[in-house]
Design a binder for these strands. Structure first.
Lengths: 159, 159
DNA sequence: GAGTGTTTTGGAATAATATTGCTAAAATAA
DNA sequence: TTATTTTAGCAATATTATTCCAAAACACTC
């Protein structure tokens, strides 16, 4: 949060958030610039750290990943040791897409898990997640329908 | 879920999930192929629909987006009309990163909201979210620390 | 309001990379 | 083994990114 962005920078970020496979020429057209200054801005945004990285998103349904679970996890004690062990474990599980430590009375962590089916989820839950020391409460909700899935961040406040 | 993938395809997908800015040559090196067959496989994966799209991820902290909220939303009645109005609205809010209809006794929707600060969240909640007809219950948890944020899907089951 | 320094742009030349067609090799099946 | 199919690798071509330099826009001073 240091460099100031003008309208063109914000539009570049908006376009790239939606589609990073744009060529520099297409991007330049869309933001109303010629290729060279456009590329220079993109590089500057990468240098500045505003742009984190570029990734490819795959389709779950095409990969046989039919079950997504949202898991609320409570810990028995809130000690640094408990947390660090849990977090290390969670990071090593490819089934875990996201894990967030949150405020709230109900739970400590919100975890999103993607697996093939309910049987695999059962195995993961009992074989992996609940085996982590300190995990005292687990409550699962299952995805019925994805209404919105958006990797974009809001940029309206910059303009 | 139709085409069969061999080990090389899976490795290509794994690499691209992590970093889509790889050049085809680099990718070919990593998976042990020469550039042309590698590119052909990538194109085939795009054609097949397994690859959804490529996006650029930005850093929240660098954009002054200091508050992430996980919101549990309950609806008064479970009618198609209630749902479609809610979902249309939610899709129009840039602050909403994801919205999922889920099973569970506690709530109907899990929504992730990204804003600048608590004041902006307050405005969004009272001015937008709770104004949608049918929204009867709202419970917010706030992000304390992001432990894992991974756009990759697990592919281990394919091998 | 003209002049000066700074920043940003656009165009052209160059370099890197993607893309395609073709041939050979490898894998598969009979 | 042999025929058939699939896949890889090479080389030529096309596309795209990158760099450099002169011109334009902008801000600031006097």
């Amino acid at each position: 949060m240091k460099l100031d962005l003008d309208r063109i920078d914000v539009r570049i970020l908006q376009e790239l958030q939606q589609d990073s496979s744009l060529t520099n020429q297409e991007l330049a057209d869309r933001v109303g610039l010629s290729p060279s200054p456009c590329l220079r801005r993109v590089k500057a945004l990468e240098e500045s750290g505003i742009i984190d990285r570029k990734v490819t998103l795959l389709k779950r349904s095409e990969l046989g990943l039919k079950l997504t679970a949202f898991v609320q996890i409570s810990m028995d004690r809130h000690t640094p040791d408990r947390f660090s062990v849990f977090e290390e474990k969670v990071n090593s599980f490819p089934e875990v897409r996201s894990c967030n430590l949150v405020t709230g009375q109900n739970c400590d962590y919100l975890v999103e898990v993607v697996v093939e089916d309910m049987e695999k989820y059962h195995d993961f839950l009992l074989g992996q997640l609940t085996r982590i020391p300190g995990v005292s409460g687990v409550q699962s909700s299952f995805l019925l329908r994805s209404v919105k899935e958006n990797t974009s961040l809001p940029l309206g406040h910059l303009m």
